[in-house]
Structure formats: C-alpha cells, structure tokens
Design a protein around this nucleic acid. Structure first.
Lengths: 208, 208
DNA sequence: CTTGACCTTTACGCTACGTCAAGGTATATA
DNA sequence: TATATACCTTGACGTAGCGTAAAGGTCAAG
C-alpha cells in the first residue's frame, strides 16, 4: 500500500499540511520520496500518539529516545489533562452561572426568593460539614459544587429534592438484602449518581 | 481605586502582557493614561468575560454590540465546552489505558487474572443493568466507566471493594435516622462520592 | 540622590498548523 | 498526443494569546 499525503491524510483524519509539517519537524517522515518529490507513506505509529493529544515535542522524545521514561511522561501528561479538565469545569459552571442570571432577568423577584432558599440550604450544609468536607476535598470542588447548586433552575432543584428522598428509600431496600452487588444496591448507586450529578460537577448528559 | 497594570493583573490573575495586549486589540482599554504613559484601570467587566474562556473576538462582539444574542452565544459556548470535556475525558482514559498496559508488562500473568476478574464483574453488571443504565446515560459514559474500571490498578480495586462495603455500612446508619440531611447521610454521600469516583469519570482529587 | 521596583514601547518567539501562490506531475479522456 | 484536471511540491505569510527579553523612562522609600 503506497499512501500519498492526501490518502494518508484522509485515512488518519489530518490535513496534508499537517503531514508536511510533521515531515518538516522530523516527527513523521514518509517511508520514501519518489523522484518527483512525492512523499510516500507506509507506517503510522505516530498518528496513534497524536491521538493521545501529547505535545509534539514529547512525542518526538518518546519515539526517538527509548530511554525516555515513557510512563513518567504519560503520568505527567495525565496530570495536565486532569488539570485542564478542572479548568474546563470551572469555565462551564461560570458560563452556566452567567446563563442563569441572564435568563432570570425577567422574573428576578421569584428567582431571588428561590435563590435565598437554596442559599440557606447551602449555608446549613457548610456550617455542619464544612470542615470535614473541605478537608477531604479541595476547596475548589466544594465551591464548584455550591456554585452548581445555586445555578440550578427551579425544575432541576425540585428533581434534586425528589431524588434525595428516593435515594433514602432505595437505601432501605439495599440494607435489607445486605448485598452490595444486589439489584437494590445497584439501583441505589444509580440514583445516588444522579443525585450527586446535581451538586457535584460531573456529567449530566443523558441520551435524548 | 487606581489600578496599574500589575495590580489589576494580580487581582484578575492575568499577566501585565495580557493587559497590554488587550489594550492593543481594543478589548480592554484602561480608564485613562497618565502623562507618564502609565495605564490606569478602573473597571474590569471584560475580565469577567475572559474568565468564561470565550474567544476574544466573540467577547468583543458581546461588549460592543448589544443586539448580539448573548445568551445564545453563551449556550453555544457551553456546548463547545462540554464537547471539549468529553474529548478530554476520552484522552484521559486513553492515557490511563496506555499507562496501565505499560506498567503491567512485568507481571502480565497476574494482571491478566486480575483483569479477568474485573471483566467478569463488568459483564455481570452489564447484563443486568445494561439497558436501564444505557438508556438513562449516554453510551459514551457507560463505556468510559467500564474502561476506567478495567484500567484500575489492583490497589485501587481493593480500595474500591472496601468502599463498597463501607457505603453499605453507612447506609444502615442513614436509614436509622431517616433524615437525608443527617450527619450519617452526609457521610454516606461523601463515601458514595468516593465510590463513584472509582467507576465514574469525575474528580478524585483530595486536598493534600 | 540613589536604589529598586515599577512602568513604557518594540519586537521576535512559540504551537500547530491554515491558506494562498507559483509551479511541477500523474492520469484519464478526447 | 494533447489537454484537462486532480494531484503533488516548496516557500512564505498569518493566526491566537500571549511569553520573554531589550532598552529605556518613572515613582516611592530611605
């Protein structure tokens, strides 16, 4: 199989410019060049690395230097990714906050009452469990959780309250069986996951 | 309050270069300039927008053009952020997977047994709850959850199992009181959050 | 008055390519 | 065989969002 730039490009989902650039910086060289100068490709191990989203410089190190501590680099990269996600989540809550306030401009009075309600709930929560939760989890997370709650719509809030009760109900069943992997326990886990979804920054996505 | 570049920079968490750049592109102009040329700042609405991570071009639009549909743009932006995070999580699981396989090269035999164990657990789980979970949550999430479990280290797995039991123990207490906001229930929530942290892609960060 | 922390503009560097431009090549068809 | 057109080449400038000097002016304290 002889791949030209475009063929490999389509196959790997990158532009021809990208491949030429990779050639230029000695990241992914074509297997050979024709007399006409056309690049001919054969392998594509590097594209796998690219999929991991590593910085090109690092990829070069890993590819060229076997003594380079791969795992260490990956761990490092993982840390970076996690940090990035933290930032992203912060952005998301910020955006959601802005949307909420923008949407609520018309019925501000009601909204305010509702917010006060939630605020109180949060304050109670903080007072009682502040130290213990904040010591276990980073402050950022607690703040995010609170922010998320304050930005809930009233509908979301209702569901949140409802779930809380359901969780407790299901727990009763789980206790009866005493089996962590039981039907009831699993169901509880699912419910609790939903419940946490309201306060803790995690996916709220559902299949439509 | 007269803010110079650095003061505002520290306050807003951006560099002086950034502020000068914003001035240059007419994004955030200082309130005035002293005879010496020093930039003096007063307001910082734009910095708030910057926090949202919007592209500068868009921010300019929002700031300058009132008729620009703010909320719509924000929603759009939110979608983008969510998509970005999905991608990020994919990268993270990929990296974790790579790390796991790299680490396990020495004791592959044991690891394989261990993996088989987890695999079985997953299969059981899938068979029983597949449809119901997959209908409630996007397939991606379920897959990610499974992938995460498969990539756990043995140590993590042990802790995971331990937590499962603890959760159930605490639930018993919670049930006794019957109060969702009780100490025991909150504690349970905390434990459960940890437990979910093992399987569901969410923060596992703790304050050091 | 000096010192040191601050400020200014100018300008090049960075990543990972996008996007022309000017021109050579491969191939199918008239 | 000529030509159309679909591909390829190198070169070079542009992008965002600043980082990082360099060369020099300014402000407040001691």
């Amino acid at each position: 199989m002889e791949y030209t730039v475009q063929k490999l490009g389509n196959l790997a989902g990158v532009s021809t410019r990208t491949l030429r650039y990779y050639d230029e910086i000695d990241l992914l060289k074509p297997a050979r060049k024709r007399s006409s100068g056309y690049r001919i490709y054969g392998q594509q191990q590097i594209l796998f690395f690219r999929e991991l989203g590593l910085e090109l410089e690092q990829i070069k190190n890993i590819v060229n230097d076997r003594s380079f501590n791969d795992t260490c680099a990956l761990e490092e990269h993982r840390e970076k990714l996690l940090a990035k996600r933290m930032q992203l989540d912060l952005l998301i809550t910020n955006v959601e906050k802005t949307i909420s306030t923008k949407e609520g401009e018309s019925t501000m009075a009601d909204k305010e009452k509702f917010r006060g309600f939630k605020q109180k709930l949060l304050e109670d929560n903080e007072q009682q469990y502040d130290s213990e939760i904040r010591s276990e989890y980073s402050n950022d997370l607690v703040d995010q959780s609170n922010a998320k709650m304050l930005n809930m719509s009233e509908g979301q809030y209702q569901k949140f309250i409802g779930l809380e009760q359901q969780v407790l109900d299901r727990l009763a069943d789980a206790i009866k069986t005493g089996d962590p992997s039981s039907d009831a326990a699993q169901n509880t886990a699912d419910l609790h996951r939903q419940w946490l979804g309201f306060t803790w920054t995690s996916y709220k996505q559902k299949s439509t």
